[in-house]
């Protein structure tokens, strides 16, 4: 049965035919991060795809992947265009290099997973938390529950990790 849900007032939906995304978000709903691993070449990939971007194999299995990494780049949105986000500015869009498979299969590749900066409970982070995060910040994955079978992976500060003294932030605050 197709998933239809509401997140921050924004309608979300996922069709049954979209089996790759259904599987991805079902794992997220269980607060587990899983990615497809190619059955032929063993590389992990993100976001879900219908074949392996490295060897073209159609065969993959879902495997658990540790949700930890480093902020590779970000944007800080002050003028939200989507109605759902207008009450939550400024918010961060984070592009996070997972530790897993970083620099593989070539130097500049990584599993770069998008998410917002969130509180540990998965709610969008308040403005003061936004100021503490930049390129180099260590983050861990948390989940925002949306509906049965659908949660969004998000990022929060990794309290246990060694953080850079000062993460790189856009010079004009």
């Amino acid at each position: 049965m197709a998933i239809k849900a509401d997140y921050l007032g924004m309608p979300l939906s996922l069709d049954d035919l979209d089996v790759e995304n259904v599987a991805y978000f079902r794992h997220c709903a269980a607060h587990e991060f899983h990615l497809q691993q190619c059955s032929a070449c063993s590389l992990l990939r993100y976001p879900p795809t219908t074949a392996c971007p490295w060897c073209m194999s159609p065969d993959a299995r879902w495997v658990p992947v540790e949700g930890r990494g480093t902020v590779h780049s970000y944007s800080e949105v002050h003028h939200a265009i989507q109605p759902a986000f207008k009450a939550h500015t400024p918010y961060l869009i984070l592009l996070v290099d997972l530790d897993t498979q970083k620099g593989t299969p070539s130097e500049h590749e990584a599993l770069r997973v998008v998410g917002n900066l969130a509180a540990p409970d998965g709610k969008l982070a308040p403005p003061e938390a936004v100021l503490a995060v930049g390129i180099g910040t260590r983050v861990r994955m948390v989940f925002t529950d949306v509906a049965p079978g659908l949660a969004l992976p998000q990022w929060t500060l990794d309290e246990r990790a060694a953080q850079p003294e000062k993460p790189w932030r856009y010079p004009q605050e």
Binding site: L12, N21, V114
Partner: peptide, 20 residues
């Protein structure tokens, strides 16, 4: 455009306010 439903692959971007 900004209020359109977020479906399928868009869950990896628009659901994060990553759209424009």
């Amino acid at each position: 455009r900004s209020a359109a439903p977020v479906t399928g692959d868009m869950l990896h971007n628009r659901a994060y306010g990553w759209q424009s």
